[in-house]
């Protein structure tokens, strides 16, 4: 078996809310491994910390403990839990993609550019970037008349597709997906599933949370089930 792209051991996340003097557990003792071309799906009840795992890997959250070993394109192993900010930003730009349910973008930018931008940032030409953006948007059934409009006014499902296209365009080595098909109609969801399969075939490692168990069944090579973290008193006892 080849060396994994991502290996998470003992990941934990607590939020220390100073104002309320509270410690909120969000993810507890998460272990998982993702290989190139494989999709690992995170399942578990609400509050089990599924999103918190993805955000910890992407470093939107600062992990409380554990190791997040990522093997980059050059073959170096980096602990994302410890990596410095510029290392993380470079990896986000070149290797690690994250598609969430939310899209933050500027009100004036055309959808086509919103999608093409990540490719420009890694040195693609404007023309080919827009061409590729168009291909992805077509593949996801986003009508061409919307391409020149800002996604600020789009519906949830339309935004989600823009977000996905934006996340897929650079063909990241590691892709984190947080319910990417949640607000799509079945036909569009089907197209998205095809795109994800396509990326996997190209060697992308995917760690995903899916809304529908059916999507998990179809795409996942492996399933990691998370349980809700124990109450903070239990965790503190464990540590002591």
């Amino acid at each position: 078996m080849q060396t994994p792209i991502l290996q998470v051991t003992g990941y934990e996340k607590y939020f220390a809310l100073h104002e309320q003097n509270k410690l909120i557990p969000s993810a507890h003792q998460v272990n998982l491994t993702v290989h190139a071309g494989q999709l690992v799906a995170l399942i578990g009840p609400t509050g089990a910390g599924k999103s918190s795992v993805l955000k910890g890997i992407y470093r939107t959250y600062l992990p409380s403990s554990g190791r997040i070993l990522y093997r980059d394109a050059a073959g170096h192993e980096i602990d994302l839990a410890q990596a410095n900010e510029h290392q993380v930003l470079a990896l986000r730009r070149h290797e690690i993609g994250f598609v969430t349910q939310f899209l933050h973008c500027l009100p004036r930018q055309a959808t086509l550019d919103v999608v093409a931008n990540p490719l420009l940032a890694v040195g693609g030409g404007r023309k080919e970037a827009r061409l590729r953006a168009g291909e992805l948007l077509s593949a996801m059934n986003l009508p061409e008349r919307l391409w020149s409009v800002s996604p600020a006014t789009f519906s949830g499902g339309e935004r989600q597709r823009v977000n996905l296209a934006r996340g897929l365009i650079t063909r990241p080595r590691l892709l984190l997906l947080d319910e990417p098909t949640a607000s799509l109609d079945p036909a569009t969801a089907e197209r998205v599933i095809e795109l994800i399969e396509n990326l996997k075939a190209g060697g992308t490692a995917v760690l995903a949370i899916f809304h529908h168990p059916e999507t998990t069944r179809r795409l996942a090579d492996q399933v990691v089930e998370l349980a809700a973290p124990p109450a903070i008193e239990e965790i503190l006892k464990e540590i002591a």
């Binding site: 220390a16 809310l17 100073h18 955000k55 470093r59 939107t60 959250y61 600062l62 993380v88 930003l89």
Partner: peptide
């Protein structure tokens, strides 16, 4: 990182 400061602020004041 900006997204981290906004989503997982560490200091009481930032929170």
């Amino acid at each position: 990182l900006t997204d981290q400061i906004l989503e997982d602020p560490q200091h009481a004041y930032t929170q």
